[in-house]
Computed example of a mutant assay.
Amino acid sequence: MAVGKTPVSVLQELLSRRGTTPKYELVQIEGAIHEPTFRYRVTVADIVAMGIGRSKKEAKHAAAKAILDKIVVEGTEDGIGNNLIPEMKNEIVSPYDDKIPGNPIGNLQEMCMSRRWPPPSYELVNEEGLPHERLFTIACTVFKQRELGTGKSKKLAKRQAAHKMLEKLQDVQSVPSAMSPGLDDDDDEIAHSVPNGVSRYADLKDSKISTMTSTQSHKVSQFHKNLKMSSGPKLSELQATALNNVEFNYVQLLQEIATEQDFEVTYVDIEEKSIKGKSQCLVQLSTLPVAVCYGTGSNSKEAQSAAAQNALEYLKIMTKK
């Protein structure tokens, strides 16, 4: 098939080999009389796609392109897309005049979803020129990466910005630190990658870390057994408590369990704020081994409560019968 064929002709040829044809329907005309917008619907088997354009021809091509994208990506139960080889995607001419092949906006969205990244965001940053010769600039942002696209319409500018972002990210498999948006939990910061894939903790591999002696291991093992066999009203209350109520007094329950089981609870407020500007706190349980749990909150009290909640989660797991 020769390069340069329109989406309508590519779709027609693809389906004619299977003895079927696409069904096009003009479903809407909107806008001013001198500047109408046409909307076409195309149906192939059980696949339906829409396309819009400033002329019927442009809208029809857009609809054909949309359904070709669906066939390429999804296929259908009767295998209608199975014979559409990948190279055919490059033979499809965009219904827009930007000479960018395919659907960069949709492709960028799919890339972010497949890599479990946040979706791209778009922002109109500039608009200039006479009413009939407008030039739009749209910014596409993924993490901290930002690319600008310009065009005679917002759609064209958005396509160009998405296309540039795709080219930048196509070889990126993990999230470099320069792109990191900050993860959901402050203590997940250590999971961030850094430039050239070199971990900030790479020196640990050469460190000599002392291991426990057999006597120490036995003491820890015995502690876990004793903890497993522990009983008491407050421990029973803990097992029956759902630790997801923001109104619950976790600090009080932890202290009551500590009194019952004869260990001490010590809170250590951290002066520095977290990377999200939150108060931080550590709570230490004088058990063997010592247990230390972390919490954050909008103030010191909330941080202590979060740390106590995490400590209770630990005890709940360790004492479950």
Rank of each mutant, 00 (worst) to 15 (best):
residue 3 V to M: 13
residue 9 S to R: 15
residue 11 L to E: 05
residue 23 K to A: 09
residue 24 Y to D: 08
residue 27 V to L: 04
residue 31 G to I: 05
residue 34 H to R: 06
residue 41 R to H: 05
residue 44 V to N: 02
residue 52 I to V: 09
residue 53 G to P: 02
residue 64 A to T: 05
residue 66 A to H: 00
residue 73 V to R: 15
residue 82 N to E: 04
residue 85 I to H: 09
residue 94 S to L: 12
residue 96 Y to S: 11
residue 96 Y to G: 01
residue 103 N to Y: 04
residue 108 L to N: 12
residue 108 L to K: 10
residue 108 L to Y: 14
residue 112 C to V: 02
residue 117 W to P: 04
residue 118 P to C: 03
residue 124 L to T: 02
residue 124 L to C: 03
residue 126 N to T: 07
residue 126 N to D: 07
residue 127 E to K: 11
residue 135 L to D: 10
residue 139 A to S: 14
residue 146 R to Y: 05
residue 148 L to T: 07
residue 151 G to S: 04
residue 153 S to C: 08
residue 156 L to T: 10
residue 158 K to C: 01
residue 161 A to P: 08
residue 161 A to L: 13
residue 163 H to F: 11
residue 166 L to W: 15
residue 169 L to T: 01
residue 176 P to V: 02
residue 182 G to L: 04
residue 187 D to H: 15
residue 188 D to I: 03
residue 196 N to I: 03
residue 206 D to A: 02
residue 206 D to M: 08
residue 209 I to F: 11
residue 209 I to E: 11
residue 212 M to T: 15
residue 213 T to F: 06
residue 217 S to G: 15
residue 219 K to G: 01
residue 220 V to L: 06
residue 224 H to L: 12
residue 225 K to R: 15
residue 231 S to T: 10
residue 241 T to Y: 09
residue 241 T to N: 09
residue 247 E to T: 06
residue 249 N to G: 13
residue 250 Y to G: 10
residue 264 E to Q: 13
residue 279 S to F: 15
residue 281 C to W: 12
residue 283 V to T: 10
residue 284 Q to E: 10
residue 285 L to S: 04
residue 290 V to T: 09
residue 296 T to K: 11
residue 300 S to G: 09
residue 302 E to H: 14
residue 302 E to Y: 07
residue 302 E to C: 01
residue 318 M to T: 14
residue 321 K to Y: 11
